[in-house]
């Protein structure tokens, strides 16, 4: 059952992401990317990361992708549908990607790499002292410093985005 759902989500992710990188209409690509994120959130639930799954929908689909759609409409990017979509070096790109794929396949999946035996979490999905509580406590104790650094990073990105996108008015 779990495996079946995993294959379903995986097929969705791969199909939708292939469409994302090949569509000529930017808005369609963005909407398909949202679909990809939904399927990924499904995979996260299967992997016992329910908090992360919701964060995926809330932040990626509900936040970042709305920002993308908003900017696409601001930039009037739909006109680029009629233009050439791919670089002239696309052939080499495909070769490089295939090499990369082969490399990952050989290094990560094949080659008899030893993986740790399955341990699993101490809690099960959906129980009340579960993923959220565990994640919260580890995030605010062991990983408190990286957490603070990440918040500084977000602040810097926010200021940077405002400075870059602000229209300077010459008087």
């Amino acid at each position: 059952m779990e495996l079946l759902f995993f294959y379903l989500f995986a097929a969705g992710i791969i199909g939708a992401s292939l469409l994302v990188v090949t569509r000529s209409n930017v808005i369609h690509a963005a909407l398909l990317l949202v679909l990809t994120f939904f399927f990924m959130s499904g995979v996260f639930v299967l992997a016992g990361a329910e908090f992360l799954a919701v964060v995926q929908v809330l932040l990626y689909a509900g936040g970042i992708m709305v920002l993308y759609l908003f900017s696409i409409m601001l930039m009037n990017a739909e006109v680029s549908v009629r233009l050439r979509q791919f670089h002239r070096q696309s052939f080499f790109t495909i070769v490089v990607s295939l090499i990369l794929a082969a490399e990952i396949w050989w290094k990560v999946l094949g080659g008899g790499a030893a993986y740790p035996a399955f341990k699993g979490f101490s809690w099960t999905l959906g129980t009340t002292p579960g993923n959220v509580e565990a994640l919260g406590s580890i995030l605010y104790t062991k990983y408190l410093f990286p957490f603070e650094v990440a918040s500084i990073l977000l602040l810097a990105a926010m200021i940077g985005a405002i400075v870059l996108a602000k229209r300077t008015i010459d008087r």
Partner: peptide
């Protein structure tokens, strides 16, 4: 990665 290398449109 293939998308980054292949596409011309910066948003994609």
């Amino acid at each position: 990665a293939a998308g980054v290398l292949m596409r011309r449109n910066a948003i994609i």
